[in-house]
Amino acid sequence: MIEYLVPVLATTLAAATPLVFAGLGELVTEKSGVINLGVEGMMLIGAVAGFAGGLHWGVAGGLLCGALAGALAALPFAFLTLSLGTNQPATGLALTIFGIGLSAFVGQYFVSQSLPGLQPLIIPGLAEIPLLGPVFFSQSWVVYLSWLTFAWLAWMLARTRWGLILRAVGESPEAAHAIGYPVTAIRYAATCFGGAMAGIGGAYLSTVYTPLWVQNMTAGRGWIAVALVVFATWKPGRLMLGAYLFGGMTILQLHAQGLGVELPSQLLAAVPYVATIVVLVLISRDRKLLQLNLPASLGKPWIGN
């Protein structure tokens, strides 16, 4: 049983990592009061840019290219919603459609190429702990990077002046503006940060998780990341939990037939999407919990005065 559990848990962490990056990024964007439904598109753009970068500069270069491309992809969205005050859901949707097209267009040059992938970085000492070692400390360094990013963000949001300003902008742009904070500039930064994180998530997919480019390879992960932010009630810790739950779901679905579940593979593949709906329902029925944590100005355009 243990021999079976360890690889399942270890691959769960790897499968969840794109969701961790993209979800944490969207969480920061939403904390500033902006909802960006373009995560799927930014992830795809990050994936194709990451693959291109990975061909030349290895995984680290690929992730950097993905981050840069994701942040750039967020710019037109930021300009439209923040400088021109357009409808945020619609603009995000446009970004997703644009991203699907752009990534497929650029990606045509990379079809049928592949990257070497990444060897796990086994942490001496810790990796020898029974059960925990092989699950947590024999991962690729990108997975460790995702934990560091999480720790840094959780600390920054809760404990620093920067986090406070970000939350103030999301709760009440009028008040933040009155005290003298540049609301629009902060929202630009938060939106581009979200784009960069989505880009890293996409680049992780195309350089580490399945080191090749496939059209539409994110397969809805960007949308699941958006749903995870709601599930997390805008709290980084819960977001991690949610991401790993979903990572587990994608992996279990691969192992289900081995475990004796007699369902066709196509229906099992639909399970994460059904689970997203179930999770949204469970969290949305608790109105108070959502209202309490929802950034008060989320999705409302604010054009300075």
Binding site: T91, F98, G101
Partner: peptide, 12 residues
């Protein structure tokens, strides 16, 4: 896929 690209731009 270029038509997706144009569709996204049109909406933008």
């Amino acid at each position: 896929a270029i038509s997706w690209l144009f569709q996204g731009m049109l909406l933008f």
